[in-house]
Design a protein around this nucleic acid. Sequence first.
DNA 1: GTGAGACGTTGATCTAAAACAAACTCTTGG
DNA 2: CCAAGAGTTTGTTTTAGATCAACGTCTCAC
Lengths: 229, 229
Amino acid sequence: MQKLDESLLSGLPPFSRLNRAQIREILDQARIQRFEEGEEVFSEGMEATHFHLLLDGFLRVVRTTAGGEQIIVLHISPGQLFGIAAALQRDTYPATAVTAAESIVLSWPSPLWAGFTAQYEGFATESYKTVGQRLGQIQDTMTEIATQAVEQRVAAAVLRMVNQSGRKTEEGIEIGFPVTRQNISDMTGTTLHTVSRMLSAWEKDGIVRSTRKHIVVTAPHRLVEISGH
Amino acid sequence: MQKLDESLLSGLPPFSRLNRAQIREILDQARIQRFEEGEEVFSEGMEATHFHLLLDGFLRVVRTTAGGEQIIVLHISPGQLFGIAAALQRDTYPATAVTAAESIVLSWPSPLWAGFTAQYEGFATESYKTVGQRLGQIQDTMTEIATQAVEQRVAAAVLRMVNQSGRKTEEGIEIGFPVTRQNISDMTGTTLHTVSRMLSAWEKDGIVRSTRKHIVVTAPHRLVEISGH
DNA sequence: GTGAGACGTTGATCTAAAACAAACTCTTGG
DNA sequence: CCAAGAGTTTGTTTTAGATCAACGTCTCAC
């Protein structure tokens, strides 16, 4: 197995204040894994043996209800830590992480967390910043689901994905990973039927173009209007 | 102003591993304040100058949308830290804290946070545990709002309040702070009308007894059934 | 003691979105 | 190449819960 290059981590916030040697140390303790689209990195309730960093790809963090329905709590983009139950003194993962696209993940055993925060300048600070942002984001989503109409929620969800992973094409901005109508309904607490109708309507209005598992937003400003933000 | 007694803090998780002298130090740096029911301890977007501990009373943590609607994100019980934006490297509060009953609050300047976590054994650990629990709880609430019917959500919200603050009476378990129909609707993303009808129906079924701003749950098990948990 | 404001109830109507239903169309694997 | 499964579309019906509306009642301040 080839050695990982230090440059993989050096640009990322939790590691930005560390020198080459320190990053080397950290990398040498990591396990690297590749996941196919749709695989679970860990699942809800499972013992939190590791904490992780997404190097490449995309993840959905998902909770499943007793009744079998599921909702997508948030998405993880490359460069972000996830499954950091250890940071919050939990011993099980509170949600399931499933890849939205083929992904590369670094993992460290949970017990190393304490050492990382103690030894590495800025690691704790930046990690807790991430936790804070995520908490804020979940609160936003929750407020949105509780107060906004379905169309606004769906618009907001699409915009969130565009902001996290959008890449320019000639037609507009494209979401950088596969998304189904069902996925969007799981993000917004609605049904795939409603999402499908919504996208059809938007397509008729020239706001989006979409094919199977694939969405291009051609008029982002109009979506922003719809979302009411 | 009288000196605060060390016993106020010694039983609480973040301080449980500290000795008298350390607790004295911490108390001497605190500001203590009394708030009437309905007052704001801090509000959304405000600079996070302090972090706080609720000694007595009850708090609601609230977010307000652009459209003026509000939702209650969680409740804070006595003994809990809150407004710990500093812990998550935020410089503004992400939500508003308003007292649900007359409350006593200790506050420390945010810059002390770093010192507390560094000097006091167990303080960081326990505080982050709290953050983790709160994150989990918000995720639960969000999942609930996204997937459950209104009656289930309202039942769950009432049960949550009962669990946090319930005290036994001859009639049943009483929620320990004033709650309006509007408050419950703000917790569940519904309207006061719907909540009112729901409580009336439950009262007819002998599950609750309620008067103005006051709820006694007479058949908790039935509420649990309704909530579907 | 009275009046204003906050809180609560209940009825009638309306509607957004779920549920039900069925067909269409890619994609993939054997 | 074709069959099965996954994803999508679209029509129709149904309903939970919002909205509109009006009135009752408690609390407290003057």
